[in-house]
Design a binder for these strands. Structure first.
Lengths: 219, 219
DNA sequence: ATACTATTCAAACGTTCGTTTGAATACCGG
DNA sequence: CCGGTATTCAAACGAACGTTTGAATAGTAT
């Protein structure tokens, strides 16, 4: 009897999600056809509509599979920080690390497809289709409110509007780094060599963002 | 005789470019059909292929119309800085301002469509279609090399790989700010109110980036 | 084995896509 | 006014799209 004679549960679903993750990343949502997708996944054309209902529902499932654990990891890190601080304000640098490291860690998962997803996620922040932005916005909202409150507590002296802008900047930098397109390489003619050393990247980005967040106020 | 009896030169071309700019920003390249585009522009369906040759050529023309002056403005600002410095190194903060302000100033042009273009440009840095990223990469290359060299001269003590990463971060923050999607609003549940005050935004972003760029080195 | 459900499959559905065509119209120097 | 070029127009092209259908197959509890 052959090894793994038993078919994993929902194998077709998983293969569709994996193929969708990769193709959406490479060609976008509209640029990925069901035929190309199902062909890459090695399943029948009708399988997507059977298992997910529609292409739009598949897109949502792709995000839900990764984003739910990602949000949970972020909140867990924040919980740990707040428990450790025990009521005292938390270092902004620690907050930044807690926020960016779960996403960046996912880029290490080159085999399981996590890396594909982070690139997809990074570019989805600027996705033209508003429905998709609303979707991931809803997924982010709960954890985001926690971090926003934590930053406000960590930086009580900073005007609220200035903090919103600086969080906006931080968010953009992370999104662009996650997307990790070759645009900057094409433009600057140089290639960051150690992109795959996640720990080093977390430190680089944290240092950059923490310094930007604490930039002197022009009052 | 009616006012403006003379038909402006290439009026159809201009109307197509304007409509394309707006629709590409709203729905992306693949999500914008020629029928929707020509309908919004008030021209015949065949006009795009007649005047531009193909949809892809139209996309290139949309970028070329705005990006060539934008790059020229950036280089002009850098030229002015270097002439003023007369061989002495330039303040990193001044370099940042020279780099980001032409693009951000374009967001003030709500009537001429410049604002549409900056949002389109910001999201195109993470465009799935590689051909488009290559295209704008080529357009950016000359000016970008100048700025890279200027930053290297302004920060001689910084390791080159660290500088590349920090330029990467800066570029991402600008791209995200230009894209100015509502994602951060959807996520954070708050809206930067003074988005349209360009001068204030330039100062906010410059302060943030200059501080990040000068973040302490971990040696 | 049987009956029932879950899944897969090939084929086709109607629609929309970017592009092309050839005639009709506008424009303009002579 | 005329001849020729430039542009516009309605119509159609073949291809590709997301989705649906109904039969065939696999899996499972009785």
């Amino acid at each position: 009897m052959p090894l793994r004679a038993v078919k994993p549960q929902h194998e077709t679903r998983t293969r569709i999600l994996d193929a969708a993750e990769e193709l959406f990343m490479q060609h976008g949502f509209g640029g990925t056809s069901m035929r190309h997708l199902t062909s890459n996944a090695g399943v029948n054309l009708a399988a997507v509509n059977y298992h997910f209902g529609s292409k739009d529902a598949l897109i949502e499932a792709v995000f839900r599979r990764r984003l739910d654990p990602l949000n949970a990891a972020r909140i867990a890190q924040l919980d740990a920080l707040e428990a450790e601080a025990g009521g005292r304000p938390i270092e902004p640098e620690a907050l930044i690390r807690a926020f960016i490291s779960p996403g960046l860690s996912m880029t290490e998962d080159t085999k399981g497809g996590g890396r594909n997803f982070t690139r997809l996620l990074g570019r989805t922040y600027t996705e033209p289709a508003k429905a998709i932005r609303v979707l991931i916005g809803q997924m982010y909202a709960p954890g985001m409110a926690r971090f926003k409150a934590a930053f406000e507590r960590a930086l009580p002296q900073m005007p609220r509007d200035e903090l919103v802008w600086r969080m906006h900047f931080m968010f953009g930098t992370l999104a662009y780094t996650l997307a990790a397109t070759d645009t900057v390489q094409l433009i600057a003619g140089c290639k960051p060599e150690d992109r795959h050393d996640v720990h080093l990247l977390v430190e680089r980005l944290t240092a950059f963002l923490a310094s930007g967040l604490n930039a002197p106020l022009k009052s």
